[in-house]
Design a binder for these strands. Structure first.
Length: 134
RNA sequence: ACGGGUGGCCGGAUAGCCGCGCAACGGAAAGUAAAAUCCACUUGUGAGGAAAGUCCGGGCUUCAAGGGAACAAGACACCAGAUAACGUCUGGCUGGGGAAACCCAAGGGAAAGUACCGCAGAAAAUUACCGCCUUUCUAUAUGGAAGGUAAGGUUGAAAAGGCGAGGUAAGAGCUCACCGCAUUCUUGGCAACAAGGAUGGUCCAGGCAAACCCUGUCUGAAGCAAGACCAAGUUAGGACGAAUUUCUUUUGAAAUUUAGUAUCGGAGAGUUCCCACUCCUUCCAGAGGUAGGUCGCGCCGAGCCUGGUUGCAAAACCUGGCCCAGAUGAAUGGCUAUCGUCAUAAAUCUUUGUCGCAAGAUAAAGCAAAUAUGAUACAGAACCCGGCUUAUAGGCUGCCCAUUUUU
RNA sequence: GGUCCCAUCGUCUAGUGGCCUAGGACACCGCCCUCUCACGGCGGGAACACGAGUUCGAACCUCGUUGGGAUCA
């Protein structure tokens, strides 16, 4: 189990969007990136709903549904030391809840795989450089 | 019964599981630059009629800043009332629409001045083309010249009161009746205005002020990212003048201070002036970093609910009761079940009409219980109030008008 | 949350209430030129964000919607 905390600063959102991995589903977009400032045994989640989706009550609703789904999914499978960002899409407010759960799980699996790969390659490439620097 | 007008109200309910914000009670530890902390479970509480648009008006806060005058800029504009105030509301007047209930109107001033009115038309504001009439000339004609006139014609969105009679060379408010218009008087009304009378033919004069403008009334500006406090960090420079001290023959250099009183002067909300008030060695140039926290901020308010009195009403007053969201990447949700409301569909049932001897057929209307499918709106507080505007599935209800039928 | 600004062919723009059935440039389409393309020449289509009001008459004036953009300490 990993503890889930909420991202609140604009800086963090931008960082994840720039550097992280991205998976697109029909009901949501998931972005993720490692960050050293994350406490151990923790992962951070941020929620985004842009003005494109609709007026204020629709944006609030997408965020709520994302939050409700994320409580189920990320408590079990969230990686430690990672910042996730969930972005709502047009269908997020209307689609059946089970579909939202499924797609979120799929997206999380994919992102986690990508992150692990990147980490592995990063470690391989990083080690010799550090050696040569020393 | 059907069709319309207008006002008010509601705008899903219950249960279960998981979850969120805030407040109170309780507990805990920790150490940060400082202040917010963290945990638990219990209790309480948790969006709207528009929370929206930000179109008006206030409270509140800051700009050091109170009063008066002029100008500038902006808003508003029939009358009376309501209100903290308003561009809002209520009642009335006038004009327009409608068969009526009722609805709509930025509804002051065009004899204070300026501008504009394309095309067409003689002429778009001191007009005269075709006409009509009189006089006169000659080449006696479908002619010219001088005058009178504005009835008729054409154009246009708009052409200088309308219509009838008299009158005339032809005409004309030239004269008269009626209607309209203007002035004035009387009556009613707080007033806008209405009704009636008298006088006026110099009745001289179109539209446009949502063109400039004039008149009257109102307005200092900016906005809770206002603003106040706490913490950390950074910066605190240069030039000139004055005074003092030290060094120096002097010029000058260095350091420190720039205090108090009085006068003058300067500065101070868009501009100027006056009174009052405040501040002041002068000038120039920078540097640094951050949205960390607390308050403002929700328990007292132009507050909400109930009842009563006054008033046609908007509202006002009185009695009693209540305390009711407070976030800040922003809580009030997710799922399930049952029910409610509306629409549609087919079948069942009932009533009535028609056809038929009857069985029955067919059309219309209705209601009850159940079935299926679909729909269940607009939309989310962010300092707070009063309005306006815009969006809105569906439902309840008061009053009024017209038509038809029955009693 | 507050305060402002803007909207004209596909794009960038011009436009005194009547000369506007809206002009110009680039782009697009057709024809000509050329062996072909480009350049050049001729011609064509294409827009006043939406809804009301004022006016005899609105792209223009007024009000309300819609959409886009800027800014704050």
């Amino acid at each position: 189990m990993t503890e889930v905390r909420i991202i609140k600063k604009r800086k963090d959102f931008l960082k994840v969007a720039k550097q992280g991995e991205k998976v697109v589903q029909s009901t949501l977009i998931l972005q993720a990136a490692f960050n050293l400032s994350v406490e151990p045994d923790c992962c951070h989640i941020g929620y985004t709903a842009t003005k494109k989706l609709g007026k204020a009550h629709i944006r609030n609703r997408t965020k709520r549904r994302l939050r409700a789904a994320a409580r189920v999914v990320f408590g079990m499978n969230g990686l430690q030391g990672v910042q996730y960002v969930l972005i709502g899409r047009y269908r997020t407010a209307d689609c059946p809840f089970e579909q939202l759960l499924k797609e979120m799980q799929q997206a999380l699996k994919k992102v986690n795989k990508l992150l692990q790969k990147e980490e592995a390659t990063h470690e391989q490439t990083a080690d010799p450089t550090t050696d040569s620097a020393n």
